[in-house]
Design a protein around this nucleic acid. Structure first.
Lengths: 168, 168
DNA sequence: CACGATTTAATCGTGTACGATTTATTTAGG
DNA sequence: CCTAAATAAATCGTACACGATTAAATCGTG
């Protein structure tokens, strides 16, 4: 590895840049923390909007996924959301208890549970799909930057997941 | 608002691009989901590394913050991590039970709890601070892009937090 | 056809997040 | 000084995440 690469690692990932001004925080150069904190910040903006619909953020994602393709299995939803049944099963049961979806065992394969939107769920999905414009101002970045940032994050997520899998 | 701006919102945030190929996912253009999923992916890469130290990811952040400045109050830690006492108090108690930190009431102001690293905590912090180089390959982006992405995310987080506060 | 391997959800335990409330302490105004 | 307001943590209830395990159904091969 080149010296430059080693230094780059130290500077951009380790958060080990010198703090001559004394104002630097402990995580100023940590990419993982920037992602972590941005996720929390997003949730804080989304929460009051989703509260009006009676949804949490992960529930909103499930509704959007079903709006895109209804009757998906728990496993298929998990592939889109990168979650597994241990998280999704109780989440979907709460959505069902609140009247947004219906869970049905697949007649052809009784192992599989398919999730269907109710009329109430479809209405919530329509309302949820209209939220993003309200968020545009909160994001506070030009549209081109939003698109570029989104793409980088998708690549980052793909890279990280591939790396995590390889360690098995 | 210009037509272009309206279209941009629809394309880049709403996830409403047409899916001619039939392969698009439901969240392909959602910035919030890209952030959310990248956070999970990061955690999956970090987890096996932090398991060896006996730390969770938020605990690792607290240890790093204390390594940067020991004896911080719960409130000060919360400002760095964007968390409050309802999350931090139990987390720090678990760190204390595991022997990484000590909690002490401030003598001058008994309301305040200051958190101090133990020798074990300092050793874990030293080991934790050496993790990032191992993650560089997992991230799979050139150093310049990591730095740029990190900066954009900090800006995004700042914008979102400001927007959330304004709604109070 | 039988039976072990595989697949799909569900369950369980631990640890975050976070809104709302509570308790203890300190500060300020009368 | 003495009490009302303010501040700092802690507590409580609900809802994710996720590793590990379990249970039920299906598949594959002899």
């Amino acid at each position: 590895m080149s010296t430059l690469a080693i230094i780059s690692r130290a500077i951009y990932i380790c958060g080990m840049t010198n703090d001559a001004s004394g104002t630097a925080g402990p995580f100023d150069n940590l990419l993982c923390f920037a992602v972590y904190a941005a996720g929390h910040a997003f949730n804080r903006v989304y929460k009051p909007l989703l509260d009006r619909l009676g949804l949490t953020y992960p529930q909103y994602l499930v509704i959007l996924a079903l709006r895109h393709a209804d009757g998906q299995t728990v496993g298929a939803l998990g592939e889109h959301l990168f979650l597994e049944s241990n998280t999704l099963t109780p989440l979907i049961k709460r959505l069902e208890a609140a009247g947004f979806v219906q869970r049905r065992r697949d007649a052809a394969d009784e192992r599989v549970v398919r999730v269907h939107l109710t009329d109430q769920g479809r209405a919530a999905g329509d309302a949820a799909a209209c939220l993003p414009p309200e968020l545009f101002d909160s994001i506070g970045l030009p549209a081109e930057e939003i698109a570029a940032l989104q793409q980088r994050l998708v690549t980052l997520g793909d890279n990280l997941r591939r790396s995590a899998e390889e360690r098995d």
